[in-house]
Amino acid sequence: MAVDDVTITEVKLGGRRGGPDVPTLRTDKWWKLPLTTVVVLSAFVVYATWAAFLGTSNFFYEAHNLLSPFYSPCFGHICQTNNVTSSPFLDWWKFSPALIILVFPLGFRMTCYYYRKAYYRSFWRSPVACAVQDAHTKYTGETKAPLIIQNIHRYFFYFGLVFNVLLTVDAVQAFIWPGGGVHMSIGTLVLCLNASLLWLYSLSCHACRHMCGGQVRNFSQHPIRHKLWKFVTPLNAKHMQFAWMSLVVVALTDVYVRLVASGTITDLKIF
């Protein structure tokens, strides 16, 4: 079947529509959800910008080996002056390593099918809620630049996996303290929670589900891929929840490490 063989039947345009000409007739509080999205996402962006540009100290708590996820993998001059010994490369890089690191998770989240829904609705208001008029008169969706770029989401997913591995390594390293021996503190648990949520967020990604098995026509001929697909499908149904949880927890992990590293609170030792 070639695309050009398909008959494009005619559609009548411009018929008069029924109902009053108002943007919406909804009477419920439809603006609540988009408003919450705007508030939480903006707060995250402001905090992450501060943490990346200005928070260039206290992102590492040496005594318990706790590294902020925003600064992992730590590289460059700043990491050496903060005694992060795990990755002492690129010492000529004088800026915050977070400026480079954050590009990848940011790209992953910006092109994520869930976040697209969230910001198209709340920030771009296209549409802000169902059956509420689109805020724009012209609309081309994701067919033209720049939004056509959303199609590379799967590559950001792969980068995301690399970061998940790195953050998992950080969480494991947080059990090994400089004085020697294996220990656990609240901070270790926070890092573990953060890494787990990021894994759940990645594994529940729609591109992941597609590549695991969604892509095949014939499950019966691809039993392994069918199993993988069956494993990620229930996670995929919770993608929104994982998106929010991991976003909030990654920021709180950074906050926690900073509070501990600056001596504001003590990181309680469990053993």
């Binding site: 198209y120 059956a131 609309y139 014939n218």
Partner: peptide
């Protein structure tokens, strides 16, 4: 149809080029 094991048509280019798949911005209404 794309997920049907017995169907032999490949409609992927059709939905992209002529059926406006890219117009949908997955806002889920």
């Amino acid at each position: 149809l794309e997920m049907h094991p017995l169907d032999t048509n490949d409609r992927r280019e059709l939905v992209r080029e002529k059926m406006g798949l890219g117009l949908c911005n997955i806002t889920k209404c």
